[in-house]
């Protein structure tokens, strides 16, 4: 075990050192995604805008005009794109890069870096759309100082969660299908288009014990000019510790097997 543990640590270091490569590869893959489309990367922004308008319309209709707070909603969707959707897509992370993995030696963590880079690119594109809409609606608030540290904590969590999901789903393909609907379900369980206060007190545990809710809050609150409460930070940091250990164990135990699972 000590041998494979040090190999795992080395894998992480090697992956991080390849930053210029995964940065460019992630950009390339993002560009390739929108090749031959007219709107191109604007699709990432269009997605956020259309979904947020539609949800605002529906939720406002269901709960009355005050039921849906638009900045809260679009901020939530923006954060969810980073936290929920990109983790959901992580199941196919190694399968997508199978060709490369079978012809070139790269650290396993490298592919997770590529994935996280793509998630961040998507987030930044949507962030521009978010600010544009907020400016147009004269609802712009200057981000709180906590925006960057919050984003950093969430990004590390996204990285670790993606890693933890990607390894078993390469071996057991069912995990990939399962993660699709779990993410969909988690979307409803997380206060993205509703708020904790709207939930009946007896059921607020859905928010309080939902790690994804704390992740979303760490990104959303600073964007709306608020500092997230201490509890969110503790959840964010605690998750990094727990997920980090799990990811390290998975990497040490199964790292060299993954290429055979493709």
């Amino acid at each position: 075990m000590p041998g494979s543990l040090s190999a795992a640590v080395k894998d992480i270091g090697d992956g991080a050192r390849l930053a210029p490569l995964w940065w460019r590869l992630g950009m390339d893959q993002t560009k390739a995604r929108f090749q031959r489309s007219i709107l191109g990367p604007f699709w990432m922004a269009a997605n956020l805008l259309v979904v947020s308008f539609a949800l605002h319309f529906i939720v406002g209709g269901l709960l009355g005009g005050a039921g849906s707070n638009y900045p809260q909603l679009i901020g939530g969707l923006l954060a969810w794109g980073l936290v929920g959707i990109s983790v959901g897509e992580a199941a196919n992370l190694f399968l997508m890069n199978g060709g490369l993995m079978q012809t070139q030696r790269l650290p396993l963590t490298f592919y997770v870096f590529v994935h996280t880079q793509k998630a961040m690119t998507n987030f930044l594109a949507q962030l521009i759309a978010f600010w544009t809409v907020m400016l147009l609606m004269k609802n712009f608030s200057i981000p709180d100082w906590s925006f960057l540290p919050g984003l950093l904590i969430v990004t590390i969590n996204v990285y670790l969660l993606s890693f933890i999901l990607a390894i078993p789903s390469t071996r057991f393909r069912d995990v990939g299908y399962m993660s699709g609907f779990i993410v969909q379900m988690a979307f409803f369980l997380t206060p993205v288009f509703w708020t904790r206060e709207q939930m009946r007190p007896a059921r607020r545990f859905i928010v309080d014990y939902n790690p994804l809710a704390h992740m979303v809050e760490l990104v959303r609150a600073p964007l709306l000019g608020q500092t997230p409460p201490l509890l969110d930070w503790l959840w964010g940091l605690g998750m990094i510790a727990v997920l980090g250990v799990i990811a390290l164990i998975l990497l040490a135990k199964f790292g060299k097997r993954v290429v055979f699972w493709l």
Binding site: D28, A32, Q35, R36, G99, L100, Q102, T103, Q104, R105
Partner: peptide, 16 residues
């Protein structure tokens, strides 16, 4: 440093 040429289409992006 190992340079390998193992598969013919390795690392090619078919759309590019």
């Amino acid at each position: 440093d190992v340079t390998s040429m193992i598969a013919i289409s390795a690392g090619l992006d078919m759309e590019a």
